[in-house]
């Protein structure tokens, strides 16, 4: 039986934990709003890019000698898996679920006899993955000092990927991140970055876009494709990182909300125990006094 003082200390410590989780929840909520706005603001660009790409890609895709970014470099042996996670913990199952999905894919690739390389974005994923795939991890991109995620951050990553691709360090690149759906639901998504899959054109859109007209290309169709494709990789990475940031805050908000509620329950329980033992102590004391008086 813990003493009254122990119980009191315990209650106070849970109370201060609850204060912290509550504060974290509120911070996450406000950050979530900002992250969500950023993700929404980036959407038009990505959408336009996709529309342009699907229009262009469809006409070029079937021709031989297309850009390696579009049709691949012919082999399919070395896979680069980019795992985007958060820089901070305490966000529920966010990092775990991304890492789990990535692990499943990596194990599958290894079982198929492929060579796997891993690039971690965010140190939380690295912390988990290094135990299992230590030597396969080629590097970690640290974004912990980035306050507001800008396009340049994503571009730095994509430029690096493109450089590696040009140098023939991998054949296929896929990216793991969590797509933001709501504060409660984040969907872990795998996206192939290189070679770029051609997005399907929605039927209605196609008619509106083409209307029988033939595009004029300046300088030339291939030159344009050559500039768009690398840029598209950057845009996709940027989009994924923004989605990830929003998901992280959403997951943290939910996790902290739960933690706050659990702390509240715990305080209630401990307070009941505390009151009971206080009453028991008083009763014992009274019984002792009465017994003492009667004995006289």
């Amino acid at each position: 039986m813990p003493s009254l003082k122990d119980l009191k200390n315990r209650i106070n410590s849970v109370k201060s934990t609850q204060k912290i989780t509550k504060a974290m929840k509120m911070v996450a909520a406000s950050k979530l709003r900002r992250a969500q706005e950023a993700a929404e603001a980036a959407r038009p660009y990505a959408e336009r890019m996709e529309a342009v790409l699907s229009g262009l890609g469809a006409s070029v895709a079937n021709q031989p000698g297309g850009s390696p970014l579009l049709v691949g470099n012919g082999s399919n042996d070395v896979h680069l898996v980019v795992v985007a996670t958060s820089e901070r913990g305490l966000c529920g199952g966010f990092n775990t679920s991304i890492v789990r999905a990535a692990q499943a894919k990596i194990d599958q690739l290894i079982a198929d006899g492929k060579t796997v390389k891993i690039l971690c974005v965010g140190k939380k994923g690295y912390a988990v993955l290094k135990g299992r795939y230590g030597k396969k991890i080629i590097d970690v991109v640290d974004l912990s000092e980035v306050k507001k995620l800008g396009f340049s951050d994503a571009q730095a990553i994509s430029q690096r990927l493109l450089k590696m691709y040009e140098d023939g360090e991998f054949d296929v690149c896929s990216l793991f991140f969590a797509k933001f759906q709501s504060a409660l639901v984040q969907i872990v998504t795998e996206q192939q970055l290189i070679p770029t899959p051609i997005p399907e054109v929605a039927e209605g859109e196609e008619e509106a876009d083409l209307k029988g007209a033939i595009y004029e290309y300046e300088p030339g169709q291939e030159e344009i494709l050559d500039t768009i494709l690398p840029r598209n990789v950057g845009v996709q990475v940027y989009k994924a990182l923004l989605e990830n940031a929003a998901s992280e805050q959403g997951a943290r908000m939910t996790a902290m909300d739960n933690a706050t509620r659990n702390a509240g329950d715990m305080i209630d329980r401990l307070t009941t125990v505390y009151n009971r033992s206080r009453q028991a102590a008083i009763t014992t004391e009274l019984v002792e006094i009465i017994a003492g008086a009667e004995a006289l």
Binding site: A41, P44, Y45, F151, Y238
Partner: peptide, 9 residues
Amino acid sequence: FELVSPERL
């Protein structure tokens, strides 16, 4: 006319 940058419309 639409002008879009990666960060916003």
